[in-house]
């Protein structure tokens, strides 16, 4: 985690389909990298390119010039199903996405997203349908996602509140790191370990390897 993050003002990209899995968001062959760089190109790769590597005709929505620079994604139910790869939120962030609005998110994806200051915003099915209709009719309206206030404000000025894990919210607003927080609790961890001996030692017999 890096700089503090409070709000984003942006137009919206809508993908009105459910169950967008991590293999769509970032295909497995991009997982051979050993850093986090250059994942912007991997985002939704197979939707954008044919199996022989040519850009699809017509271009996928993500490559439409009008969508460049948009930071809010509106997606169908159960976004991020599948693998634990943090490459999925890395790719979304690298491309520029800062908030995703859907009716639900897969558990691991949601946790990974929050650790990368990518906001998973859950809305009701009715609200999702209304928002999708709104983007279809007013594709260039700007929305404001305000993490501090926990609200999304629509172009009409109307706004709605969203829930988010309060701890994750504090961390993202401050740009602080969970590892720092947990390391400040090391005395408690050590006290627990003193009464709970390790169940295994993976190094036993390690010399034989």
């Amino acid at each position: 985690m890096s700089e503090p993050f409070a709000r984003v003002t942006s137009r919206v990209i809508s993908i009105p389909r459910a169950n967008i899995d991590t293999d769509q968001i970032c295909p497995a062959r991009f997982l051979k990298i050993t850093d986090k760089a250059n994942l912007a190109d991997a985002l939704f790769f197979d939707w954008r390119f044919t199996p022989d590597g040519k850009r699809r005709e017509p271009v996928s929505f993500i490559d439409e010039p009008v969508n460049a620079g948009r930071q809010i994604l509106l997606a169908g139910d159960n976004f991020g199903a599948g693998s634990s790869r943090e490459h999925a939120p890395w790719a979304l962030r690298a491309w520029g996405i800062r908030a995703i609005v859907s009716t639900s998110f897969a558990d691991i994806f949601s946790g990974n997203a929050l650790k990368n200051a990518l906001l998973p915003i859950v809305v009701s099915a009715e609200r999702l349908a209304a928002l999708q209709a709104l983007v279809a009719t007013a594709p260039d309206g700007e929305w404001i996602v305000d993490l501090e206030a926990q609200t999304v404000t629509l172009p009409s000025g109307e706004s709605f509140a969203f829930a988010i894990d309060p701890f994750a919210r504090t961390m993202i607003l401050a740009g602080t790191d969970e590892i720092g927080y947990v390391r400040s609790k090391l005395p408690a961890i050590e006290a627990w370990e003193a009464t709970h001996p390790a169940r295994v030692d993976t190094r036993e017999g390690a010399a034989a390897r």
Binding site: S83, S84, P89, I108, V182
Partner: peptide, 21 residues
Amino acid sequence: AFGIGTSEIEMVLATQTLLQR
């Protein structure tokens, strides 16, 4: 037993714990 992301891997390597609800 459950799957974790890379940030959480780093957390476990560094602390042998995880923040969980």
